[in-house]
Simulated scan of single mutants.
Amino acid sequence: MKNQSLLFYSRCLLAALAITGTALEIIKYGIGMLMYYTVQSNLLVSVFAVYMVYAMHKGHDLQSSKFLRIKAAVTMSIMITCVVYHFMLAPLVDDFWRVENLLCHYIVPLYFLSDTLLVDRQQQYKWFDPIWWTLLPILYMIFGLVNGLFIKIPIPDAKDSPFAYFFLNVPKYGWNFVLTYAGTIFVAYLFSGFILAGVKSLNVGRGLLNR
């Protein structure tokens, strides 16, 4: 019971941080921030975390295989935000130490990953799950390319607007550059998904906070 109370308040904090980071991005820079994968993935985590808090309050089971497989997809979706930003985008920014920046790119992704690793029951994923976990980033890449090439909705504070990220800018860098970057990210994402699935397949009992 004590662990469940701790977990409940931990997820309340997770939801509050995710909502705060997402809200700050939109309030400070405009609704166009929703064109960024970063904001979309943090919005997804906000909604998911609020659902977890609600479900725990109602006494619903959040350890079923179906739920945990969906949660893993959300985990991977937010972690790509952290990894791609840290290695590819952070070196290019001038205003790194913004509260919303740290929340959306580091604190919320790593918090959500920790929740998945420490809380979720082991041995609940299917071998092919890491493949379908790639769906959201792939859909975003298609969305980003369609917007940049055809719709051309401007992206706030993006040097490559109407492309949200430089590695999607086909007119500037060409298809070879974009597909190479996209392919590299896809392979790394898929590989990371199998690592997560492998870690969660270990026979180490139930999640530490869910015993």
Rank of each mutant, 00 (worst) to 15 (best):
Y37Q: 04
A73N: 10
L17I: 04
V47A: 12
W97L: 13
S41I: 08
L44F: 10
M52E: 14
S46V: 02
T81R: 06
Y85N: 02
V83Y: 10
V93E: 15
V84Y: 05
L34A: 07
H86D: 14
V84Q: 05
A55W: 09
V39E: 03
I107K: 07
P91D: 09
L44H: 03
I70N: 05
A16R: 00
R69C: 04
F96C: 05
T22R: 03
N3V: 02
M35T: 13
K2I: 13
E25H: 01
A16I: 09
I78C: 02
L34W: 15
V39D: 01
A73V: 14
Q63R: 01
F67Y: 14
S41Y: 01
A16S: 10
T22V: 02
V74Q: 01
V53D: 01
Y54S: 05
D95E: 10
R98T: 14
T22W: 09
V45I: 12
L102Y: 08
K66T: 15
A23D: 06
Y106F: 14
Y111A: 07
S114L: 08
V84K: 01
T75E: 14
G21P: 07
M56F: 05
V108L: 05
Y36S: 02
Q40L: 09
M35C: 05
D61V: 02
N101S: 11
Q124D: 13
A73E: 12
V74A: 07
G59Q: 09
S114I: 06
V84S: 06
L6Y: 12
G30Y: 10
Q122V: 07
L102A: 05
W97F: 14
L102V: 03
L68P: 03
R69W: 09
H86M: 10
V108Y: 04
R98P: 12
M56A: 11
P109A: 02
L102M: 11
H105S: 04
A15P: 02
L62H: 05
D115Q: 00
M88H: 00
N3I: 06
P91E: 11
L68A: 09
F96E: 15
M35K: 06
K66Y: 13
I27V: 13
D95L: 01
W97N: 09
L13K: 00
A73K: 02
T116W: 15
M88K: 00
L68K: 03
Q4L: 12
G59S: 07
G32L: 08
W97Y: 14
L43P: 05
V50C: 03
L113W: 13
I27L: 12
D61W: 08
T81I: 06
V74C: 02
M79L: 13
L34G: 08
W127R: 01
